[in-house]
Design a protein around this nucleic acid. Sequence first.
DNA 1: AAAAAATCCGATAAAACGTCGAAAAAAATT
DNA 2: AATTTTTTTCGACGTTTTATCGGATTTTTT
Lengths: 244, 244
Amino acid sequence: MATQMRGTPPREQTPSTATTDGRGSDQWEALLELATSRPKRAPDRKQDRSKRTEQQILNAALRVFARDGISRSRIADIAAEAGISTSTLYEYYKSKEDLAYDLPTSHLVSFFQEYRLAAAGKTSAREKLSLYLSMSADFAREHADWGRLFYLEIWPSVLVSETELRHSVNDFARIALFLIDEGVRQGEFPEGRNTYETASILLGAVNQVIITWLLYRRPRNLTKASAEITERVLTMIANERTIS
Amino acid sequence: MATQMRGTPPREQTPSTATTDGRGSDQWEALLELATSRPKRAPDRKQDRSKRTEQQILNAALRVFARDGISRSRIADIAAEAGISTSTLYEYYKSKEDLAYDLPTSHLVSFFQEYRLAAAGKTSAREKLSLYLSMSADFAREHADWGRLFYLEIWPSVLVSETELRHSVNDFARIALFLIDEGVRQGEFPEGRNTYETASILLGAVNQVIITWLLYRRPRNLTKASAEITERVLTMIANERTIS
DNA sequence: AAAAAATCCGATAAAACGTCGAAAAAAATT
DNA sequence: AATTTTTTTCGACGTTTTATCGGATTTTTT
């Protein structure tokens, strides 16, 4: 349980609610562009050898973290798993924490890229939203090691707000919020509701399902379950009585 | 890993709650009794002095964990904050992990007790559910240090399922699920829906709001916001089209 | 192929964790 | 109320894990 959508960033809100047609999709593109181009905090390595080493570290760390949890994992184990010495690892990451919080970034960017591609065909806000939430669950299922690390250890942590990763985490919520606002503008969802609240309901429900699955492998079929709950909630939201 | 039941085993008293069907409220009372009597894993100290020391450790740990996060907190800091030596702390808890995961138990039991009292007057499932969710948000607000620790570090953690705390965590979800089922039985909510799913939607939404508040202090008024979102979701659920 | 730059690692320091036996405090016994 | 026994506390010390640094090794540049 325990949902985290530490999204809904208090201040920054890129998309303003302009009721223009062309403007809206400009903003949408800008938002996706931002999310898919977050810099991977790369220490500018010169040699190919380094890129390979870095990848080995990342792969090893993901395996070890997913197996033992961050707190129980030891730097030495990760280095051994990567086939390098402990001190070499410190050439790349200045601490275990640093490594743990940098690790999920690339996966998250990949998710946004995959989504961007898949959403290209969709026109209605509801369709885009439905796809977004289903894909996020599916992504966690397909990359379960990453999912465990991200949803159960990184995202919920108080420390995430101190790292670069927070930008991607904020993007995640911002995209959902944007689509809800768009849905309201286009008459797919009733007006008059607090859209932050609507976003909390949607993201909360889906995250809840994902986390339960990561912890207990239940429901058995995450893809089906998340699609189902997404549709159910979207329908509830679409059918809510308008408040003026 | 056996459940260590110490102290007086919770014995059932015949519930005097005489509502519509006696069977259902028997189960309800049993559920609450269970949740409010989870044993606090206390190493049975003989002297009063020890109880004071234990309390000092718990208070100190809560402050330090909430301030630094579990991973950055050091045993020595907690001991210093509690005014005892490091080795004395080890007399009480065998590791930092042990301490961190034992810490939230007593608060959680208090919450269930408070809820049990407050819910005594309520009759409809919806009222009980509404109260339950609102109170859980309010409890986190009133005990913000505990809330940060529990919602942001403990609950979502992979490790929680290996600790005694998991029982209380499971109770939390079980109570919500029970009330939803009861609501369906009593005709307050439409039939035919997956009630696990319904529980995920409700708990997910409320947790989402709580976590956002713990991290950003937004929305400003958590009590109002959580009551609002609770009512909104409950109304959505109550108004859903029946599926047969 | 020599010089320069980038990368890697063994040795070792620093920090945090955890243990143990003995001292101090409280309780029980006489 | 002195003495014995039990409980609690703590300083000293051993272990594990984290982190640093200077030089050796490999790669790139000239």
